[in-house]
Structure formats: structure tokens, C-alpha cells
Design a protein around this nucleic acid. Structure first.
Lengths: 344, 344
DNA sequence: TTGAAAGCGCTAACAA
DNA sequence: TTGTTAGCGCTTTCAA
């Protein structure tokens, strides 16, 4: 069997509890005693058993993150923020892909409860209400990231979708453009409805009529972006600008524009939501909004751990601003934007 | 305090061990008794405590995956394969970002040992030898993914870098091209050296001279790809084709080519390693090699869990073939490749 | 500053 | 088919 605290205690000539105190630092131990214990640990290559300590102390130093999928950089950057913050505070994290499937989410939550995780961060689906209620009943500490389920009394950390849409739309207006089409996600999604609302409100505030033919909605995917932009280009009246409300849609849109031989910022101007990676990537748009995904993860876990640590705080809905990148190279198409973007 | 097995047992009017047997299914329990226990579990909303059962049974049903970073789709797709396979077999996974830093890797391994994980899958760094030796000493089951540390007696699952480079280079030769430049990663990396070797061997086999000026090496990054391809284009003799050995390099290379106004498959032909996501993305290259990242994760965990389950097997170095995509649209540049690629 | 005793919630081993 | 007993490895509680 593996080396236990008892073995260390015997070797160091002290009681088991003394070894425990040296390891956890919960109470003072005489310098010389501490030395002896450390020496014994080293000699025996002792590794403390967290199952045992957790069972006794009711604390696992473990968190879980449930998100739609770990294969898209958007979610993954949130995950990275979560991990970095958790690690810096001595917590380990279980990552779980829900695929936006409430049943899968429920199964994971059951498993995670068994593992006695100290807290949970999750990107809920539209049907997560009952699960979250269950967590509240069990007094499990948790935080919602990126999306919120209405009526759930728990922290939310997310980006300002409405505000981001406002800024992007205004940039196009300021560039003198009026025929601005919208390409965005389903209105059943939080971001889909908020971004469309921001787009509409900005146009209205500028006394620009909203043309239903210029509003294209579809699932968040490259294929959809490709299809919707083709539809816009094949219509009788072509827009002179596009507001694309999602990075996946934007990639598909780019293909459609390239295929049509249109030069960006020349034949057509695009403002778009884009990915965190756009920072190191080439962003071909006039204006780009990047969501603070990493910060969503970090701040979410910071609040979660503060709560776990017993800090008193009110339930809050944190809305973080987007990072807005504006091209300053005078709209010259075909030129690298590596050095030509600036933050707003 | 939380509901325990004892509470369930009392409510159901049976012994604690009977409840345990119902939950774990380790031995037969009479139908009626089982019913009573299930009813009690339901009434009390009982959730078993894994800390307790793991402490007693010496099994946590937990694995860990250590990889360089979770923010790049290459690693992330491995992670997804790992998760799917683990989940399907009732295991949960800790994901850890090592940032290719051996010290960070060592810290994580220490933590994971404390958590009594049943097994470990990792992408080792070049300096992971001592850590892996330590794992072997402790008899911790583990598997190396994507990279291998020589002299470590443990399973490896990886892609065929040499073979992939061979196929891509041969495609360019078959297209009648001879001036083929190589853009790849450091020779200190496993993939860097193997892919260059594959490129060289293929040229030699075709009696094409290897021109040192056509071999460009740098770190795996978009910036490097951009810089190296610019260097190639600005030289006196321009290559007529490029073999790009990594997806990051390829993205940077594309920017350099666009900036120079070169049309792919027309002014210059490119064969490249690319990402898993290229399947749903647009791949602009004549030939694209995609590593079986998801399968690396799945197979790795399959072997790991088989070992944990006590299955006898020899230590193996699994080398999986790459997926090769070839454009069949007659090299027409500017046209969408959505429907124009085929698998080899 | 150190220790003894008890027990966290569960399952292995043995028994009936 | 069900139960009793012991104990996994640690920390809490109380005591010195």
C-alpha cells in the first residue's frame, strides 16, 4: 500500500496530527519538528491523500466548468481564464462539454455533486433552469458565464452584447454608410436578441430606416454566414455595409465576399464580432469587436472562490465591455493589418 | 450536514451496505429491497459521496490530461477525444495547461497524485523525462500523446509526421513542381525534425536537389510563417511551390502570399499541414494534411483505461495516419473549396 | 507547541 | 440475499 501520514509520523518520531499540521499549515509547529517531518516526507516520497483530507474537512479544492464545447476558441479562452484563476488559488478544475444539451448537463452536474466540488461555473442552456434550481436548493455555489437564466439568484459574468452591437453599427454610420445589413444569430439566444436590438436602436437613433430585407438571421456557423451573405449579394438591392454579429458567421461571410470578388472596405465595408484570436490574427474588417472571454472566465472564478471563501457579497450581473479594434490604414484592401489596428 | 447512506438505510429499513450494493451494483439485491432503497434515495435526494467511496475502494474514476494549452484547436480537439472516451466509460477528467513549462507540469503532476487520479494522459515536453520516471516508480498508469520522451516505457499515441510530409511533398512533385520550399518548425521538436526528414527523403527519391535556401525554419507561430514566406518571396529565386509543415505557419504564410498578390495554385502552389477545423473551414491549399487529433485523444484514453482495468498489454508506440485532402477543382483560385475537396 | 481519541461516509472482508 | 465489523487516511475536537 502507499505511504501514509502514519508512516511519515513514525519515521519523524511525532504524532500523525503533527505531520498534518506541517502539511496544511493550520497551526504552528516548532521549527525543528517541522524539519524532521519534512525530512521524513522527502525520504518516504510521501504524497498526501486528498480523498481522505476532503472526506474529513468537507473541502475538495476542486471546481468544475461546464461549457458547450471545448473545441471552439471562444469557449476555450473562457476555460483558460477559469483555469489560470483557479490554479493561482490552489484549485483544480473539471472541464465538461455539455454540447448545449440539457440532459448531458444534468448528468455532469450529478457526477460533479458526487465529487463534492466546492463550486461550479457554467454556461447554461436555455433549459437549464431546473438544474440551477436544484443547485440552489443544495446550496451549491455557482456562477453563470456568458449567458444567464432569468430568475436564478446567482452571479452572472458576461460581455456587453447590446453595447458592442451599438459601437460597431455606429462605426459604419460614421463612415458615411447607410445601407447596413445585419447578419446574426437566432433571437432565441441571449446574444442574438441583444445584438440585433443594439443594431436597430443605433440605426433608429440616426434616423436610418430599418429594412427587414437587410436583416438575416441563422444559426451560428460558417455555412450559415456564407449562405446569408450570398443571399444579400444576390438580392436586387445590395447593402453597402454589413454588420456581422458572430465570428463563425464572419468567416463564412468572408468566403462569400471573396467568391463574389468584392474587396473589403472598398466595394463593401464590414464591421464584425470576431474572436479573441483576432488579436494575433489578421482582422480584415473595418471594425472588429472582441469579447473579453478570458476576463469572463477569470472574473467568474474570482467571484466563485470569494463566495466559497465565505466573503459576503450580493448577487450581481457583471457586464464587461468588448474590445473594439478599428482599422487605421485608410481602408486599403489587400494590405496586411498586422500593424494597422488600434484599440478603442 | 448532507444526507448520507446511513440516512437512506434508515429510511429504507435496511443496512447501510445494502444501500451501497444497490448503488454500486456490486452484488445482487432483492427486487423489492432495491425498490425501497431507490425510493428512499429519491425522497431524501441522496447523492453518494465519492470522496468516501474512493478512500475506501482506492479508485477515483478520475483521469487527468496535461497539454500545452487549451486555447489552440489542435490541443483542444485532442482534449475533446479524451473527454468523450473518458465520459463514455464513466470517468471524469482534469484538464491542465502546462504551457510546455516542465515546472508547471511537475506542479500539476504533484497535485494530481494527491487527487489519486487513476491515470494520466499527457503531451510531454522535451524535459519531462524525470517526471515520467517518477510516475513509473509510483506505478501510476499513463500514456503519452502526440509526442514521446525516448526511453520511457509507456504507451505513445501520435500522428505519422514523417509519412504526412512524404505525401504532401509527393503531391507537389506529381503536379510537376520542382522548386519546392519548406517552411517548418524547430528541429528540436519531434514534428519539426520528422517532417523535414519526410520532405527531404521525398525530394531525394525523386532526384530533386535539396536547396538549403529553400528550407526555412522557425517557431510555430503565425508571425513566423508570415516572415519566412516573405523572405522566400523577396529572394532572387522564388520557389514555385511551398510545403508548410504546420497550421499556424500556414495562416501567416497565407497573409504573406495575399499581400504579395499571389494567387494560390496559380502563381504559387501550396501543400500544408492544417487544422482539424479545416474540415469545416475553407482550405485554400492544393493539398492539406490534417492530423487525427481527436483519434489521438480517444485511442490514448482507450489504452489508458484498458490498462487501468487490468488488461494485459505490451507498451506500444501507435502511429496514426494523417487525413489528406486534395483539391479537385482544377486549381481555380478564388473559388470556394467548400464542395471541392476530397479525402485521399 | 504537541498529542489522543473520534469519526468523516463509504466499501472490503467475513459471516449468517 | 442481507448484515456486522473494521478501517480507508486524514482532520476535528478536546486535552495537556
Amino acid at each position: 500500500m502507499a505511504v501514509t501520514m502514519k508512516d511519515v509520523a513514525k519515521r519523524a518520531g511525532v504524532a500523525v496530527i503533527t505531520v498534518s499540521r506541517v502539511i496544511t499549515g493550520t497551526s504552528y509547529v516548532h521549527g525543528a519538528t517541522r524539519e524532521k517531518v519534512h525530512a521524513a516526507i522527502e525520504e518516504l516520497q510521501y504524497v498526501p491523500n486528498r480523498m481522505a483530507s476532503s472526506l474529513r474537512s468537507h473541502q475538495t479544492n476542486t471546481l468544475a466548468l461546464l461549457l458547450p464545447t471545448i473545441t471552439q476558441s471562444f469557449w476555450t479562452t473562457i476555460a483558460r481564464g477559469v483555469e489560470d484563476e483557479a490554479e493561482s488559488r490552489g484549485y483544480s478544475v473539471f472541464f465538461c462539454n455539455t454540447d448545449d444539451d440539457p440532459a448531458k448537463e444534468a448528468r455532469y452536474i450529478e457526477v460533479l455533486l458526487r465529487y463534492q466540488v466546492d463550486g461550479l461555473a457554467l454556461v447554461p442552456t436555455a433549459e437549464s433552469g431546473p438544474q440551477l434550481q436544484r443547485l440552489l436548493q443544495r446550496q451549491m455555489t455557482f456562477v453563470q458565464l456568458h449567458r444567464k437564466v432569468t430568475g436564478i439568484e446567482a452571479d452572472v459574468v458576461r460581455a456587453d452584447s447590446y453595447g458592442g452591437a451599438t459601437v460597431l453599427t455606429r462605426q459604419l454610420l460614421d463612415a458615411g454608410l447607410r445601407q447596413i445589413a445585419y447578419v446574426g444569430g437566432p433571437l432565441t439566444t441571449f446574444t442574438g436578441s441583444e445584438r440585433l436590438a443594439g443594431y436597430k436602436a443605433t440605426l433608429m437613433a440616426a434616423d436610418v430606416a430599418i429594412d427587414p430585407a437587410f436583416i438575416k438571421i441563422g444559426l451560428y456557423s460558417q455555412q450559415t454566414g456564407y449562405r446569408l451573405v450570398r443571399e444579400l449579394l444576390q438580392a436586387d438591392r445590395r447593402p453597402e455595409a454589413l454588420f456581422i454579429a458572430n465570428a463563425q458567421l464572419a468567416i463564412g461571410a468572408l468566403h462569400a465576399l471573396m467568391e463574389a470578388g468584392l474587396r473589403l472596405s472598398h466595394d463593401i465595408t464590414v464591421a464584425s464580432y470576431y474572436d479573441e484570436q483576432a488579436r494575433e490574427d489578421y482582422s480584415p474588417f473595418l471594425t472588429t469587436a472582441i469579447q473579453p472571454t478570458y476576463e469572463i472566465g477569470r472574473l467568474g472564478i474570482r467571484r466563485l472562490l470569494d463566495r466559497i471563501a465565505g466573503k459576503q457579497m450580493t448577487v450581481e450581473d457583471h457586464i464587461l465591455p468588448n474590445r473594439i479594434m478599428i482599422r487605421t490604414d485608410g481602408h486599403v484592401p489587400g494590405q496586411s493589418a498586422f500593424q494597422h489596428t488600434t484599440a478603442l
